Computed example of a mutant assay.
Amino acid sequence: MASAYRSPFERLKTRYSDVDLVCPKCGYDDDDGEWQAVTTGHVVQYRHICPSCGAIRRRTISLGH
């Protein structure tokens, strides 16, 4: 049985992918897209690249001290 546990970062990535996939630059609605997440250990950066115009959007969360 798969665990239902997801980290807060995974839940936030899912939230972005569920509600924030319309490109503010060209208006393209990327229904099948998702945000990607990368971490350095001190920063988590979420990124979405618009498949229509190539615009890159980022959301950054600092875990720093």
Score class of each variant (00 low, 15 high):
residue 52 S to F: 04
residue 54 G to I: 01
residue 31 D to L: 14
residue 34 E to C: 10
residue 33 G to T: 08
residue 55 A to N: 12
residue 54 G to W: 03
residue 57 R to F: 08
residue 59 R to Q: 11
residue 63 L to H: 03
residue 32 D to E: 15
residue 65 H to P: 13
residue 64 G to K: 13
residue 60 T to E: 12
residue 61 I to E: 09
residue 34 E to I: 03
residue 36 Q to T: 13
residue 43 V to S: 01
residue 51 P to A: 07
residue 54 G to T: 07
residue 33 G to C: 10
residue 35 W to L: 11
residue 57 R to L: 14
residue 61 I to F: 10
residue 64 G to S: 09
residue 50 C to P: 04
residue 32 D to Q: 12
residue 31 D to A: 14
residue 65 H to G: 13
residue 64 G to I: 05
residue 39 T to E: 06
residue 53 C to H: 09
residue 41 G to V: 00
residue 40 T to Y: 01
residue 47 R to I: 05
residue 49 I to K: 09
residue 59 R to D: 13
residue 62 S to P: 02
residue 33 G to P: 08
residue 51 P to M: 07
residue 39 T to W: 00
residue 35 W to K: 08
residue 54 G to P: 07
residue 35 W to C: 09
residue 47 R to D: 03
residue 40 T to A: 03
residue 60 T to M: 13
residue 61 I to C: 03
residue 48 H to D: 04
residue 45 Q to T: 11
residue 46 Y to F: 15
residue 49 I to E: 07
residue 56 I to N: 04
residue 59 R to N: 13
residue 63 L to Q: 11
residue 52 S to D: 10
residue 32 D to I: 08
residue 56 I to H: 02
residue 59 R to L: 12
residue 54 G to E: 05
residue 58 R to P: 01
residue 61 I to N: 04
residue 39 T to I: 03
residue 57 R to C: 05
residue 33 G to E: 11
residue 44 V to W: 00
residue 55 A to Y: 09
residue 61 I to A: 07
residue 36 Q to A: 15
residue 56 I to P: 00
residue 47 R to A: 07
residue 57 R to S: 13
residue 54 G to Q: 05
residue 47 R to W: 00
residue 65 H to N: 14
residue 42 H to M: 02
residue 51 P to G: 07
residue 54 G to A: 04
residue 32 D to T: 12
residue 41 G to L: 03
residue 50 C to S: 08
residue 64 G to R: 12
residue 32 D to V: 07
residue 64 G to Y: 05
residue 49 I to A: 06
residue 35 W to P: 04
residue 62 S to N: 13
residue 37 A to Y: 01
residue 45 Q to C: 04
residue 51 P to S: 08
residue 60 T to C: 06
residue 54 G to K: 05
residue 56 I to E: 14
residue 35 W to Y: 07
residue 36 Q to V: 09
residue 60 T to S: 14
residue 39 T to C: 04
residue 39 T to S: 15
